[in-house]
């Protein structure tokens, strides 16, 4: 099996921009909107999701020929749930602070449609190296948008980024930015800007 690096690179790049899960495919909205009230939460959520995505893409691309088509969705969910439970325990044991702030959204990674979607659309039809490239690309694509969203919301909502206060006492935080409404507003504006940029490029 020859590794086609060019093909792998294009799979990887795909997730970063052209088919970015949040701004292009608009999937995985629940964690996107819910946990991006701080930069740190966005980063942790992005990395946790990426880990689950990459691991399950590897496993599923390896055993795709063994799974009967009729039970492929329950099989994928089982595999995804295993990795999610692993992440949940791992965070609780070694990063209790992050586990607490992400709370229920860690177990909910199981139902993030980004992960199941990539198994169905990609890992189950491509070789393992290409599935890894896709997983890393999609994972990073998901993570950078979450971090950006978290940074914007934390900056305007609390005057800080990664918990570091950037704006002094004079700044009156726009509280709406850390509330759910702020997530919708920021995401909407962000998607608008991204669409504008890619249209200009054509």
């Amino acid at each position: 099996m020859a590794l086609d690096l060019k093909e792998m690179f294009s799979d990887f790049k795909n997730g970063l921009w052209a088919e970015n899960p949040i701004i292009r495919l608009v999937i995985g909205m629940c964690p996107t909107l819910a946990v991006t009230n701080t930069t740190e939460n966005g980063l942790a959520m992005g990395l946790a999701t990426s880990f689950v995505l990459i691991s399950s893409e590897i496993v599923i691309s390896l055993i795709k020929k063994l799974i009967p088509a009729n039970v492929r969705i329950p099989s994928y969910i089982l595999i995804i749930a295993t990795f999610v439970t692993f992440v949940d325990y791992f965070l609780k044991a070694f990063y209790p602070g992050i586990a607490e702030s992400l709370s229920i959204f860690v177990p909910l990674i199981v139902v993030n449609c980004l992960i199941l979607g990539r198994q169905e659309a990609f890992a189950s039809q491509h070789s393992t190296p290409r599935a890894i490239a896709d997983g890393v690309g999609m994972g990073l694509g998901f993570t950078w948008v979450l971090v950006l969203l978290g940074a914007i919301r934390e900056f305007f909502g609390m005057g800080s980024i990664f918990g570091l206060t950037l704006l002094g006492e004079w700044y009156r935080p726009m509280v709406i930015m850390v509330l759910p409404a702020g997530a919708f507003i920021t995401l909407g504006i962000l998607v608008g800007i991204m669409n504008y940029i890619s249209r200009e490029g054509k």
């Binding site: 089982l78 692993f86 325990y89």
Partner: peptide, 22 residues
């Protein structure tokens, strides 16, 4: 067989993770 096998392997792996992290 497929679902049972995946389920058993998952349960086995998770019981190790549980033992390790608890």
């Amino acid at each position: 067989i497929t679902l049972a096998t995946i389920g058993i392997i998952s349960a086995l792996l998770l019981s190790f993770v549980y033992e390790w992290t608890t």
